[in-house]
Nucleic acid binder design. Structure first.
Lengths: 221, 221
DNA sequence: CGTGCCAGGTGCCAT
DNA sequence: ATGGCACTTGGCACG
């Protein structure tokens, strides 16, 4: 990894064009060809960048970075280099995540009745022509139930499930298929839209699903 | 900006939990409190991060970063510091972009007939209950036309426009409102879905709109 | 390869 | 604050 701190001006041309006026920036040149230009503020996103693999040319004080198979170009004009260091970082293990949608899906697949009604899992990632339904289940009456799982339930999630249901119900055997939107939290607008389309909403708690915590009890109920 | 190259292990706990096994990484501590942990590969994204503003504590060899008003925590255990540099980067001007959806919208607002039919602009960003329509126009017959503009036209764009049209047509005066999806490129699936919903698709060229290039001529037509 | 979809998405701007 | 949406979205998994 090469770290450059330099006064520079950057021009990007590709899907859009962008100009970054001359100032002091941090340039990160990674082993995989990625180039990032960071500011001293503004958080997570680089101001300009190019993801690897790339081809790099040094024409005098101008660094030109190009994508392999596109016309994307990043031109870095170095005015004053304040620091230029190369660091060997060796191999590194990958990030281990826990608590993303995939985990929620696994837990619900294992106990679909956590959705608040007796359900039996038939298949995960049931393919339709317009994308995969997260869970396909059957209820006590043998009726099909399509479940869409999200970390946050939004209008988009309702649209997505509606699209799936449209295709699923084309099959006469599944014409009565119901839809359930399951998420850790669901926006009120999404709930409203879901209700208008007769899609049931179910908020689920990861900790409860894992048995780490007791479900909320409705007192005096 | 403080740049640390260090062998370290990182734990994040917040919307999910994540563990980054011990290895040599680049730590960027920005003036606004942002903390980024980058690898020598893996492109544009930090492995772990926290956007500013944050509170930072140094407990021995462990750096603890917390969000102001959330339970998000980033714990960085420093095993071996290979480099630790502070760089003063001063002020810097913002990135200037050109060619994003906004620009396309401005150009089409100025000459809506570039969409391939005689149209008169009535209003940009016409508010509906479910979001703003990019352009509301009228055609030669005085009929309303709602235009959704995208850089890339996808199924989602068709869904979005469909949602708008549903609300617009509730007004009897606009019951006959047509929909047009305008984009620099439109996916075949989006075209198919649009056709099934009687939404017209129009591919537009930024350079042509700007008059930088002649429209494609159909020879022998 | 394209197509669809998730992401700790982030960032921007509206009400 | 919340919602809706663009983003050089990036990244991955699957047909």
């Amino acid at each position: 990894m090469r770290l450059l701190v330099a006064r520079c001006e950057v021009r990007y041309s590709g899907r859009l064009t962008a100009i970054l006026p001359e100032a002091v920036r941090l340039l990160i040149l990674k082993a995989d060809g990625s180039v990032l230009i960071h500011d001293d503020a503004g958080g997570y996103k680089p101001l300009n960048w190019m993801t690897g693999p790339t081809f790099m040319e040094e024409l005098g004080d101008v660094l030109v970075v190009r994508k392999a198979k596109a016309e994307d170009t990043l031109e870095i004009r170095l005015v004053e280099v304040l620091s230029d260091v190369v660091q060997d970082m060796g191999e590194s293990a990958a990030l281990q995540k826990d608590g993303v949608e995939r985990d929620l899906q696994e837990l619900l697949a294992a106990s679909p009745s956590a959705l608040g009604e007796a359900l039996t899992l038939v298949k995960r990632e049931w393919a339709t022509e317009v994308g995969p339904v997260d869970l396909m289940c059957k209820d006590d009456d043998g009726e099909w139930v399509a479940v869409e799982i999200k970390r946050v339930g939004t209008i988009e999630a309702v649209e997505q499930l509606t699209r799936y249901l449209g295709f699923i119900r084309e099959d006469p055997a599944k014409a009565g298929c119901r839809g359930v939107l399951a998420a850790q939290s669901i926006k009120p607008q999404a709930v409203a839209l879901a209700e208008s389309r007769e899609i049931r909403c179910a908020e689920v708690d990861l900790a409860v699903l894992r048995g780490e915590r007791e479900p909320d009890l409705t007192l005096f109920g």
